[in-house]
C-alpha cells in the first residue's frame, strides 16, 4: 500500500487530504470510505484538501463531483479546499465545475463556513 489518504473526524466534519500520487482505484476507495463514514460517524460536513494535487484531470474531477452529490444525499456538505489557481483554470477549460461541491481557500475557511451553518 502506498500512502493512501487518511480520514479524520473533527467536530462532526470528516477531513481528508488527497496525496498527489493517488491512483484511480485509491480515490474510488476513498469515495466509498467517505460515504460509509458520513453515516457511521454522523458527519455533517466533508472537507477534501487537494492542495497536494498538482493537477485535477477529468477522472479526479468527476470523483470529487460525485462524492459531493453523494454526501449531500447523506445530509453532509462537501468543501473542496486548497485548489491551486492553475488547477482551477484548467478545470474550467475542461468544462468541469465540480457541481455539488463548495470550495474554500483553506481548511479553516471551510470549517468557519460549516460552523456558521451549525454543521460543525
Amino acid at each position: 500500500m502506498a500512502d493512501t489518504a487518511s480520514v479524520y473526524l473533527v467536530e462532526h466534519v470528516l477531513l481528508v487530504a488527497i496525496p498527489d500520487n493517488i491512483t484511480d482505484t485509491e480515490i474510488m476507495s476513498l469515495q466509498e470510505e467517505l460515504s460509509t463514514r458520513i453515516v457511521s460517524d454522523g458527519a455533517r460536513g466533508v472537507v477534501i484538501d487537494i492542495a497536494a494535487l498538482e493537477i485535477v484531470d477529468t477522472f479526479v474531477g468527476r470523483v470529487l463531483a460525485q462524492l459531493s452529490s453523494m454526501a449531500r444525499l447523506l445530509a453532509a456538505e462537501t468543501f473542496v479546499v486548497g485548489m491551486r489557481p492553475a488547477v482551477a483554470m484548467t478545470l474550467v477549460e475542461l468544462g468541469m465545475d465540480l457541481h455539488g461541491s463548495r470550495t474554500a481557500l483553506t481548511l479553516s475557511h471551510a470549517l468557519r463556513a460549516l460552523r456558521s451553518e451549525g454543521l460543525a
Binding site: P85, V87, T90
Partner: peptide, 17 residues
C-alpha cells in the same frame, strides 16, 4: 509557467488513462 505546466500535465493524464 505553472499554468502551462498544469495544462500540459493534465492533458498527459487524460491520454495516458
Amino acid at each position: 509557467s505553472a499554468l502551462r505546466k498544469v495544462r500540459f500535465v493534465t492533458a498527459v493524464s487524460e491520454i495516458a488513462r
